[in-house]
Design a protein around this nucleic acid. Sequence first.
DNA 1: CTTTTCAGTGAACATCCGTACACCCATATA
DNA 2: TATATGGGTGTACGGATGTTCACTGAAAAG
Lengths: 206, 206
Amino acid sequence: MSEELSRQERKERTRQAILDAALELSREGGLSTLSLRSVAKRVGIVPTAFYRHFASVEELGLALTEQSFGALREMLREVRRDSRDIEGVIENSVKTLVKNVKERQDHFTFVAREMIAGPTLVREAIGRELELIELELAMDIGRLVPTQWSNDDLRTVASLMVTAMTGVVQSLINSPATAEDAIVRRAESQLQMVVIGVANWKSQDR
Amino acid sequence: MSEELSRQERKERTRQAILDAALELSREGGLSTLSLRSVAKRVGIVPTAFYRHFASVEELGLALTEQSFGALREMLREVRRDSRDIEGVIENSVKTLVKNVKERQDHFTFVAREMIAGPTLVREAIGRELELIELELAMDIGRLVPTQWSNDDLRTVASLMVTAMTGVVQSLINSPATAEDAIVRRAESQLQMVVIGVANWKSQDR
DNA sequence: CTTTTCAGTGAACATCCGTACACCCATATA
DNA sequence: TATATGGGTGTACGGATGTTCACTGAAAAG
């Protein structure tokens, strides 16, 4: 099979195999029900070998978080680069998100679960990633929408959008594939509502 | 201590003690890391006695779901009875929700976790409860807002609001108490934005 | 008063878990 | 070529878990 691999390469390959196995196995019950032994068995190594790569399951979870957000971050950056107006950013972001969720279901299932049910460090790491996305979205809105909002208001609306989208992801995950179109259409309507609300926000008394 | 209790009463008392213990213990790692033995130990019964009340931990989870939503449902019904306009429903609903979250933290922590990370049956039960709340909210909007929307649009906006509120609950749960005010204020702003978006919804092209 | 019901007991079980420890041997280094 | 490094092995341990089974004794039913 594999030949002529350096020690580093072999180690990296095993590490990735552990991550893949952990992702698949955590589909059932999440990180908390993931046992070091079951991961090792699936990878084809002895349980103790796990420690050569991760000090604990929690550390494994941090690596999975990193890996889960990596691709999404890059795709959102592309969206940002290719869009000139706020409607474009929103529309393309939703498309990107849905595409991502379909292509990398396990990663999103993992994040959606662990952001609430995961170990503290993992929850915090995911929270930081989401806050980053939220911040960048707030900046986009401030840049692309002709208005003079406070940073606070920008954050508020961006937070609403991110919350709505995590909700969409959670819906997509535990719904049958047949319901997908309806969920996506509803998500687009909801974001549109938010945009309209945003456009008329400061003009209202409050 | 306790005397003159019928067999039924004693059984019900033990059952409730099991539910209480399970709720407290699941605060740490959720239902999935809850062991039948640890619950029994805390209640002060022998592990096997657990089966006199629940056939499995999953069934226990269903009972906890029921109990968690029970009080909330009733409080929302009161809100609905006491409010005459949509702004009132929304404002009082948020107040009720926040009050509930503070008073019965463990119940909400349980629901927020298990709606995503829980066993299938529990997830479905929570989903049904949320859908009910969503439906009633959609009816309120349809009744209290002078407009001719389709049921579909009503559901869409109600869904957005419920999603936003579950997001708020999740924020409240894993944030320090000092951040509470900010979260609540942001939640109110977000709902207001949605309402404004709603008010201007059909007037837009789409 | 006699019988039945049944919540709770207590011992035993097979299974899985994380982790400590000594070891091996192919690769990297000197 | 000789040495050092480090992924991976194999055994072994104490502890926790779900579930079985036969039981007890007080309350309910007859």
